[in-house]
Design a protein around this nucleic acid. Structure first.
Length: 966
RNA sequence: GCCGGGGUGGUGGAACUGGUAGACACGCAGGACUUAAAAUCCUGUGGGCCGCAACGCCCGUACGGGUUCGAUUCCCGUCCCCGGUACCA
């Protein structure tokens, strides 16, 4: 664009644009066009900001609606075109809901604590707060560029002390709470102490550490205050524990299970090992059942709920105690198949099991020691990838099957995990393939226990069909009968009981990092000189991050906070040196938006009572077992304690699919003179041996490489030394779909697209690409179509030479028909988040209106309103141009469609004949209600079938089905 | 292996609860306008056959069966792709 000129007549901006031209002759040709997205979008974004158009109050006579985006971590790379996909969708929905008469809360903020800023700090010495601040500014600019209707006055940042003061407060409340199994909710720790005072701890049912000593009320009364405090530490929802954690040496930090993928860290791919460490933990396991039950009450996708179900991993079974031959201890196993107990021919316990050393016989000591050594050496990665190899060692000990008194050899093997169940399994080779493999390897007996089991000499058969054999008291019974009888027997004899087990582990709540929320705890030594944790009082929060000189761990291996000179509580007691994990700040942030400036509570009671919960949450599925689980956990806790209103925080959740990159490749022929590289076009590459090289997608158009630009961007190439083998005179690039990332040169920046086509076009195009939930590659190729649509829309109002076309004449039947059909479709599609088909409907509407001679103002106004959520800028501009007050389209009423405009000249309805056979029937429009004599049936077979049978009558029934009685 | 979701033109994708498969868009081809190009507009575009043509016919929704007057849609089996998860007892 080279110049912007005049405003003749109506409020219309003309601008001149060079459109090609012969630069050598210095000749330019111009067209006049009125649509200038730069001007329009700048104008309205400024307008919205000045007028505070999207600021929303915590009260209204309209119903509330809360639309939330998963807030981003502000990375240094800025946004790429993939990021806004979900934001565009939620913005459309938020704007749509406003048009539908709701008071809509639609905020945005930043999850601003995190690893990358810290890594950068370690390398450069730059304080993470500084880089974070810069990144956030860039994000905000990019987001505003896209015309989102956020209420920016409610912005939050998790790294802001005024925010994390409340994250610390929630931690304190968790620390001050215990889980009462009888009431099935969290309660203040004081209620537990009262119980101890009146009845000791033997009848209290709580979720607590396993090593709690039993005491009576009078014993409790005899404890010192410090001893009492120590006992309560074992009950609190936030507690310290010596736990095996995923330790990543390269990152210098502990990682949670969902941050570890295939034995390496999710971020960076560094090796992760198991290590015992004293850590803050969260008793999320207390909520396992409620987290599971809650899934039934919320509108999330099945796959996401299934992921959470699997992660929680509920399994129903029984605990069975086996006496040890010659020892007083017992080994307890957890099994989901008690019914197979008569098929047990050996037992396997984890190498880390506490009884291993005790029960190993002298003869086996060396074998066991050697095996344990071997297991230690095998990394997590090997254990995972090498499932086939059978390994294990015999301890020399035997247990007794409680049902038939048989002696059962005890093995150790690493396929049994110390952390799940009891770390011991009873092995039934006839019914379990792993046990079967183990039995074959060590030549142990395989006993069939069901008459329906087949081929158990070849493989295990896990069937529950048939009747039991070789099975003592359950011979002849079915699965359910047998299970019930065995559990009753066990409970009766005190040898076991029915039990539900969860895979879910308590969450580690500490990172050896600087850039996170400090845990508001200090340590004071007890009578024996061991440190005891104490909370920092609420009124002294926030505990702010101290300044430190370097951001890496100390020389003695302490977390970075160990470097903070003189950082002690009351100048005397050591603070906790680890910080909270990344999920802490994001586990409650949606409440802060409700009342972001409050400094006497995380949000006022009124604000929470008004907004309650999130009606629509939009974000990626990658948070399935992290953020989305922890948030539900904290929310349930806060509900228990009466801080919030709802059991579940996110009523409906939509997962937008990831937008992948579409990488382009050039092919260099292998061998030859390195100084004279030869590149071959994609269609010819099979004739040579080539190396594929990424090439920047920004110099590739429709898969054709701009060879000149390519040479310019490469230092090693000149016009003279490089050779290109072309096809059809062009260099065609190869294409591959990969994750969008800088290193693959496939990043497309939304700012570039906005500069070229405008935010409205980008918004429409991202929605048009395909179903929201589906992953899809970014491809700029098709964007011209949406851009054309926007300009066609403009030309409904202005002719090519800038003439105003809209008239006050009443709408024609034809206009109303196409309009109302689209209004209906748009409404239905938006409610179902089918935005791609909505955009198609707009295109049809604009095409059809464009082909009509008339330009009725009433019709065009309705079109603007229904299109406004998708393309807010151009619709605001045209809305004002047709004579409305500026900015009022945001709160206009979504138009209603009328049935009478939806019907065609000819009805075409599915038809039922005698309530059975169906076909399509067509008849003239002016006949409904009256008797129908003429009709056209679509299906030949039906017509044949009807031949000779007079049609008695047609009955039009609801749902547009016609019943024909013959 | 198990769980969840998919497989439709050259491409992205439509198709309500079983009722004209391929909407909408990209790309491509042809045309109009233009000294030319761009932009814009118009026409055509799943494959095949017959024909001057309108019309018409056959085949087509991964593959093989089935139910039905009628199947992209429902059922059974096979293959492939994507996501999650993995010695969980």
């Amino acid at each position: 664009m080279i110049s912007v000129t005049g405003i003749p007549g109506r409020k219309k901006i003309l601008f001149l644009r060079p459109i090609g031209g012969n630069h050598k002759k210095n000749l330019f040709y111009f067209v006049m066009s009125e649509y200038n997205h730069h001007q329009i979008e700048r104008k309205w974004q400024a307008f919205w900001e000045e007028q505070k158009t999207f600021q929303v109050a915590n009260a209204s006579d309209k119903p509330k609606f809360y639309v939330l985006d998963m807030f981003p971590y502000p990375s240094g790379a800025g946004l790429h075109v993939g990021h806004p996909l979900g934001y565009i969708a939620s913005d459309i929905y938020a704007r749509y809901k406003r048009l539908k008469g709701f008071n809509v809360l639609h905020p945005m903020g930043f999850d601003s604590f995190g690893l990358p800023a810290e890594q950068y700090a370690i390398q450069t010495g730059q304080h993470p707060a500084v880089t974070t601040e810069e990144n956030i500014s860039r994000y905000i600019a990019q987001l505003k560029n896209l015309g989102f209707s956020y209420d920016w006055s409610r912005e939050v940042r998790t790294s802001d002390p005024a925010y994390y003061r409340w994250t610390q407060w929630i931690f304190s409340e968790l620390f001050n709470s215990w889980y009462n199994v009888e009431t099935d909710r969290a309660e203040r720790i004081e209620t537990l102490v009262k119980r101890f005072e009146s009845e000791g701890n033997q009848v209290v049912k709580a979720v607590a550490d396993e090593d709690v000593p039993l005491f009576s009320a009078s014993e409790w009364a005899g404890f010192t205050a410090e001893e009492k405090y120590k006992i309560t530490l074992k009950y609190r929802l936030a507690y310290l524990a010596e736990a095996t954690v995923n330790w990543c040496a390269a990152l210098g930090s502990v990682l949670s299970n969902d941050e570890v993928k295939d034995g390496v860290s999710e971020r960076g791919g560094f090796p992760v090992e198991q290590k015992l460490m004293r850590q803050w933990m969260m008793r999320i396991t207390a909520y396992a059942q409620r987290l599971l039950d809650g899934l039934g009450t919320i509108d999330w996708t099945d796959s996401l709920k299934e992921q959470q179900r699997n992660w929680i991993g509920r399994s129903v079974g029984a605990m069975v105690s086996f006496d040890l031959d010659g020892h007083s201890e017992k080994i307890t196993v957890f099994t989901t198949r008690v019914d197979t107990i008569y098929g047990v021919t050996f037992m396997v316990i984890a190498p880390e099991h506490e009884l291993v050393d005790k029960i190993t016989t002298d003869a086996q000591k060396s074998v066991i020691a050697a095996y344990k050594e071997e297991v230690k050496k095998r990394s997590e990665l090997d254990r995972v990838s090498d499932v086939k190899t059978v390994s294990g060692a015999f301890t020399g000990a035997y247990t007794i099957n409680p049902f038939n008194g048989e002696k059962i050899p005890v093995f150790i093997a690493d396929y049994v995990l110390a952390g799940y169940g009891t770390g011991a399994v009873m092995a039934v080779p006839s019914g379990d393939q792993r046990d079967w493999n183990f039995a074959k390897h060590f030549d142990l007996p395989i006993i069939p226990i069901l008459d329906a089991q087949k081929d158990i000499e070849k493989q295990a058969d896990a069937t529950k069909e048939g009747r039991y054999i070789n099975s003592g008291i359950i011979d002849g019974l079915t699965y359910q009968e047998a299970t019930d009888k065995l559990i009753a027997w066990l409970e009766n004899k005190g040898k076991g009981k029915g039990k539900i087990n969860y895979r879910l582990r308590d969450a580690v709540f500490g990172r050896q990092r600087y850039w996170g929320e400090p845990v508001p705890v200090y340590f004071k030594n007890d009578a024996d000189g061991a440190p005891l944790p104490y909370l920092i009082p609420d009124d002294e929060l926030p505990l702010e991050l101290p300044a430190i000189d370097q951001y890496k761990p100390t020389e003695t291996g302490e977390p970075p906070l160990g470097r903070a000179a003189g950082w002690k509580y009351k100048g005397e007691y050591d603070y906790e040196l680890s910080t909270m994990p990344g999920w802490a700040g994001s586990s409650w942030y949606w409440y802060r938006y409700m009342d972001p400036a409050n400094n006497s509570a995380f949000a006022s009671e009124d604000a929470v009572a008004y907004w309650k919960d999130v009606d629509l949450y939009v974000g990626g599925t990658e948070h399935a077992t992290g953020h989305l689980l922890y948030s539900r956990f904290w929310n349930k806790f806060m509900k228990d304690r009466g801080f919030v209103q709802e059991e579940e925080p996110f009523k409906k959740l939509i997962n937008q699919g990831m937008i992948q990159g579409r990488s382009s490749f050039v092919y260099r022929i292998k061998g030859g003179d390195a100084a004279k590289p030869v590149f071959v076009s994609a269609g010819l590459k099979d004739q040579y041996e080539t190396t594929a090289l990424h090439v920047d997608v920004n110099i590739v158009t429709n898969d054709v490489l701009d060879v000149q630009k390519f040479i310019e961007t490469r230092k090693d190439l000149t016009n003279d030394n490089a050779e290109f083998l072309l096809e059809d005179g062009q260099y065609k690039c190869g294409v591959e779909i990969e994750k969008m990332s800088k290193s693959k040169f496939n990043v497309v920046n939304p700012d570039d697209i906005v500069a070229r086509y405008g935010a409205d076009t980008l918004r429409l195009y991202e929605m048009f690409l395909g179903p929201l939930e589906q992953a899809k590659p970014w491809n700029t190729n098709g964007i011209d179509g949406t851009y054309r649509f926007i300009r066609k829309l403009w030309r409904l109002f202005y002719s090519d030479n800038g003439q105003w076309l809209v008239t006050d004449t009443p709408p024609s039947e034809a206009e109303l028909k196409v309009l109302h059909r689209v209004i209906k479709k748009v409404e239905e599609d938006i409610e179902q988040f089918s935005f791609n088909t909505t955009v198609s409907a707009f295109m049809v509407l604009v095409n059809e209106l464009g082909s009509m001679k008339t330009r009725s103002k009433a019709v065009l106004q309705d079109l603007l309103v229904i299109l406004a959520p998708f393309a807010p800028h151009i619709t605001e501009e045209l809305w004002q141009a047709v004579g409305n007050q500026a900015g009022t389209i945001s709160t206009a009423a979504f138009p209603k469609w009328e049935e009478r405009y939806l019907v065609d000249d000819v009805f075409e309805y599915p038809v039922q004949i005698n309530g059975k056979v169906r076909a399509t029937i067509s008849f003239p429009l002016d006949t409904p209600g009256s008797e129908i004599e003429e009709a056209v049936l679509s299906n030949e077979a039906v017509i044949k079938w009807l031949e000779g049978k007079p049609l008695k009558k047609f009955i039009i029934v609801p749902k547009r089905i016609i019943n024909v009685v013959v």
